Amino acid sequence: MKIVIVSDTHMPRKGRDLPFLLKKDLMESDLIIHGGDFHTVDVYKEFEEYGELIAVVGNVDRPELQSLLPRKRTIELMGMKIGLVHGDGKGKTTEKRVLEAFDEEQVDVIIFGHSHIPFSRYMKGALLFNPGSPTDKRKLPYYSHGILTIGDTWKIEHQFYK
Results as ranks from 00 to 15, higher is better:
17 D>M: 12
159 Q>P: 03
68 L>M: 13
85 V>G: 08
3 I>F: 09
115 S>E: 00
162 K>S: 14
31 L>Q: 01
77 L>N: 03
34 H>W: 05
99 L>N: 04
38 F>A: 06
116 H>L: 08
71 R>K: 15
26 L>A: 06
40 T>A: 01
64 E>Y: 05
82 I>W: 00
82 I>K: 01
109 V>R: 00
158 H>Y: 00
157 E>W: 06
96 K>I: 12
55 A>I: 08
142 Y>H: 13
162 K>R: 13
126 A>D: 02
46 E>C: 08
158 H>F: 01
91 G>P: 05
20 F>K: 15
56 V>H: 07
3 I>P: 03
57 V>D: 00
13 R>K: 12
123 M>F: 09
147 I>T: 04
106 Q>W: 11
99 L>T: 08
7 S>G: 08
24 K>V: 13
72 K>Y: 10
55 A>K: 05
150 I>R: 03
127 L>P: 07
17 D>I: 12
18 L>F: 09
135 T>P: 04
26 L>H: 09
14 K>V: 04
133 S>H: 07
21 L>P: 15
140 L>Q: 10
17 D>F: 12
157 E>D: 12
13 R>G: 03
52 E>T: 03
153 T>D: 14
43 V>G: 00
140 L>R: 07
69 L>E: 02
56 V>E: 05
105 E>A: 11
109 V>F: 00
25 D>Y: 12
161 Y>H: 13
125 G>S: 09
136 D>F: 12
73 R>V: 04
106 Q>C: 10
60 V>T: 10
50 Y>C: 03
139 K>D: 14
70 P>C: 09
52 E>Y: 02
38 F>E: 07
8 D>S: 07
110 I>P: 00
52 E>W: 03
154 W>L: 07
144 S>F: 02
34 H>I: 07
157 E>I: 01
132 G>Y: 06
101 A>W: 07
98 V>F: 06
122 Y>T: 11
101 A>H: 09
113 G>T: 06
102 F>K: 01
131 P>C: 01
94 T>C: 11
47 F>P: 05
150 I>G: 00
39 H>M: 14
158 H>A: 05
117 I>D: 10
22 L>G: 11
53 L>C: 04
69 L>K: 04
23 K>E: 15
103 D>T: 10
118 P>A: 00
68 L>D: 00
35 G>I: 03
161 Y>K: 06
23 K>V: 15
148 L>E: 00
18 L>A: 06
21 L>Q: 15
153 T>A: 13
76 E>A: 10
115 S>M: 03
13 R>Q: 13
117 I>H: 11
154 W>E: 05
83 G>A: 05
155 K>F: 04
90 K>M: 14
34 H>V: 06
83 G>S: 06
5 I>A: 01
104 E>Y: 10
129 F>P: 06
9 T>Q: 05
106 Q>E: 15
45 K>R: 15
87 G>W: 02
22 L>M: 10
22 L>D: 07
121 R>V: 01
149 T>M: 09
86 H>K: 04
38 F>I: 02
36 G>F: 08
134 P>L: 05
151 G>I: 04
104 E>Q: 09
139 K>G: 13
152 D>T: 13
94 T>D: 00
149 T>K: 11
27 M>Y: 08
73 R>I: 08
74 T>F: 05
127 L>M: 11
